[in-house]
Every structure is written in C-alpha cells, then in structure tokens.
Design a binder for these strands. Structure first.
Lengths: 232, 232
DNA sequence: AATATAGGGTGTATTTCTTACACTATTGCT
DNA sequence: AGCAATAGTGTAAGAAATACACCCTATATT
C-alpha cells in the first residue's frame, strides 16, 4: 500500500442480487434502467457507495429502497473490476446477494431513484438480457448459493416463517435444479433437528393439509458450531 | 448505478495473503512497512490498483514483485470497506489469497517498493501484530482455505511437484490444525484417484524413503466436474 | 352420501462411506 | 548387528446415503 496520498473519495458501486421464492420458482429482482449507459436495459439494483458509508450499509440502502425491509439476509459475493465492465471508465462493483421472504416484502416497484423506471421480479431461469456484467454476477451468485445451502441454513431466508416440508423441498429443488426424493429429504432434514414442528396446519388448500414447521435458530446454532465437520 | 458521472479514476488497493508451506508449517509472507501510516509495522503486501489494470492484474503484480513468479494460484477473498480501516480516508481493499511452492519461489526479501523495508515468511500460528485490518484478512483467508481444501485440490499448490503422502497429510493437518489418521487419509486420498504414483522415491532421508506422487490434473478434472455432488 | 382429486406422510433393505485401530518393512547410521 | 525413524498396509463396526411404493386425509364434485 503506497502512502503519502491525499484524502481521496472512493468511486465504486455496490450491486445486489435479490432472491425471492414463490410458486416453486426462484426469482430475482431486476430494475429497468432509465438512464445511460444501458438505458432501457434490465439490470441489478445498485448504487454508488458514498464515501462515508460502509459497503454493507450501501447494500442495506439498496435493499431498503426496493423492499421496504431492514434486516434482510445478505452476503458479499465478489468484486468485479474488469476494465470494460462499465463504459464510463473502470468502475468496480462489489456484488452482494440477498434473500428475502416474498410474502413479507412490500416490494416497491416504482422506486425513488430517477435512474430506474421500474423494478420487477424475474424467474431465474428466464432472465432478460442484462446491462453491464450483471448476468455474470447473477450466475456467480447462484453458484455460491448452491454450494452454501448444503452446509448453511440460508434457504430458510427465502421461505415464510411457517412452511411445510414440501415447500422446503421444492426450494432445494429449485436451487439445485434437481428433483429430490421425498422420503430421503424428510428423513435427512428432520434428523438435523433444526426444525420445530408446529401445532398448526396449512390452510386454504383443497387437499389434506400439511403440518407447518419453523426453523429453530437456537437449535441450529448448536449444530452450526460443528459445521466444519471435516474428517478427523 | 447512478449515471451522468465524469470519467473517474478508482482509488482502492489490492492486498494479498501469500501462503507457503514448509517444515510442516503454514507460512504467510509479510512485509515490514517503511512509511506512514503504520510505519515499522508488519502487514500484507499490497498496492493501489492502477486505473488501467484489472484487480487480478494488480495482484499478479504484487506476486511477481515478491516471489519472482508468474502463474501463482490466487483467488479473490473479500472486499473490506470499513470506514476506519485506513487512517487516510475510506480506502477499500480487495483481498486475495495465493498459494505457492516455497521450493520454487525465489523470494525477494528486499523488494523494490520504497514503502517496504523487507519481506519475510511468518508461521501462521505466530504472527506479529499487523497493520490496518490485516489480521482480520488473514483470519478470513484461513477460514476460506479450510473450507475450500475439502472440496478442491488447492492444497497441491503448496507442495512441491513431487511429494510424499506424508507431506500431503501434514499439509492437511496444518491447514485444519488437527491430526489425521494415516491409514484413513491414504485410503481416501488414493480412492479419489487424482494422484499419480511415480517410480521415484524420496532422497536424502535417513530412513526408509517414501514413494513420490504427483497431482494428476487431467484425472482431477473429470472428477471435478462432479464436484457438486449434492444429494439427489 | 359416494366418489374423485391432490397432495401428505411413512419404512426398510442395500450399498457406500467413515471410523477406529497396530503391526511389519525398509533405509541409513553407528 | 542393531538402532532409530518413518513407510506402508487391512479389517471390522457403525453411520450415512440411496432406492423405492403405498395408504391417508381434506376438500370439491356429483
């Protein structure tokens, strides 16, 4: 790190891949750009990071603006710095991904920023062409999530607080794009002992209602400590 | 991403945690700073990223300067952007980690940059106090590596081209800070079928010489495709 | 009231992987 | 010849992963 430099302002953006899940599909929140570059293209929601805010705070700002929610699950993904990624010069972007319960979000489809015309959920497997390197960012975030859900309970961030085992299985199937065996899935999930069976059942369905479960964070934390169960 | 901005230069650094392995220990290459801030402290090698180079290229520049080597294994780790991490203002750093074979490196312990007094290998479990948030960066890179070596063959980057199974085991033991069972380790490693047994043996030891092995990248790539072996 | 529909919920046998564990073999050195 | 130091090897028990099919129950329909 070289020294003797003036007090400088940093110029970089934060972009966020916001995931939601309903109707058995993973969705991504995209914005339609209303300004150049890439006017009229779809892209990821993002902002320039102010010089007096952390990158995490900038992403929280993005999430609050588009979802009206605080405390959304988010993780840094990767920083993209190709020379050609932004036509106005080398602007790096720190990409994050976030996951939220679609049911509880009050999605702001007419956001305040003038550079956005509208926001909209898009099914992950049917995305429009995207501005900048945003397709690449989304691809990379899916890779990350696919890996991460197999050792971390982030999938629950996408489900309503109370959910059925079938919903949980459908979510894993959507993430991994792969059918799972119902009996084996349940056996395994329940053996982890991180789900709390409720005295409630699904409502409003025209067939036998399924039991509802909650993710039990307290129980999970005991197991999570041993998450790195590498071979001895 | 807001628009209508002037062509701006980006101001951020790249820092690199360079890992080596010998004498059964993981080592990190640190530099002693010769300029403020943190003059006389130890820290990670790093540079400001030029506005016409990618972040990867900046890290390659760091690696070349300190090791004289090109083509070193490196991965982006995380981008650190706390407001207080740099006393001269909010300078974010994109941290990488790299792994190299100590034997083949011609480490430049008197580097060219004036901000560095000298460079030196330090055992990971006996580090000096570090400048900036560099301790945090190192901790995070170990976490990453611990996880990654269990599903990716990056450990071989730290070994000489030809190595014994005991060396390989010692490396895993150093990374996980945990003793492994010799028979089980060998059984498992050999079953992966990514090692090539050579017709050569260790030399210069005063005991029964061990067989030498090579990592077989071609074989590995076949298996690696199936790396994400999630349950069906 | 009977029936249809749609998904809920459950067990077992087989195979594969993980773990625990101890002795003989080879080489260089004295 | 004997010592010191590490190399190299197999088996049994337990745990986890996989493959697989039928009955149950709530509602809607006639």
């Amino acid at each position: 790190m070289q020294s003797n430099l003036p007090h400088l302002q940093s110029i970089f953006t934060a972009d966020c891949v916001i995931f939601g899940f309903n109707e058995g599909e993973l969705k991504v929140l995209l914005i339609e750009r209303n300004e150049y570059p890439f006017k009229d293209w779809w892209g990821l929601p993002g902002f320039f990071v102010e010089h007096n805010e952390t990158i995490d705070d900038a992403v929280k700002r993005i999430l609050l603006e588009y979802t009206g929610l605080k405390g959304i699950y988010m993780e840094q993904l990767y920083t993209f710095g190709d020379l050609q990624r932004h036509p106005q010069g080398r602007i790096i972007t720190v990409a994050y991904y976030a996951m939220l319960r679609l049911e509880s979000a009050n999605i702001n489809l007419k956001p305040l920023s003038t550079y956005v015309r509208k926001a909209q959920w898009h099914p992950l497997n049917n995305l429009p062409e995207l501005a900048f390197d945003h397709k690449n960012i989304i691809d990379k975030s899916i890779d990350k999530i696919r890996r991460k859900v197999s050792h971390s309970p982030i999938a629950f961030e996408l489900l309503p607080e109370k959910f059925t085992l079938t919903q949980l299985q459908q979510l894993y199937e959507a993430i991994w794009d792969k059918k799972l065996d119902k009996r084996n899935f349940r056996k395994k999930m329940l053996k982890y002992n991180v789900l709390k069976e409720l005295d409630e059942k699904q409502k409003g369905v025209s067939y036998r209602a399924a039991k509802l479960y909650k993710f039990d964070k307290r129980k999970y934390n005991r197991i999570f400590k041993n998450e790195l169960n590498f071979s001895k």
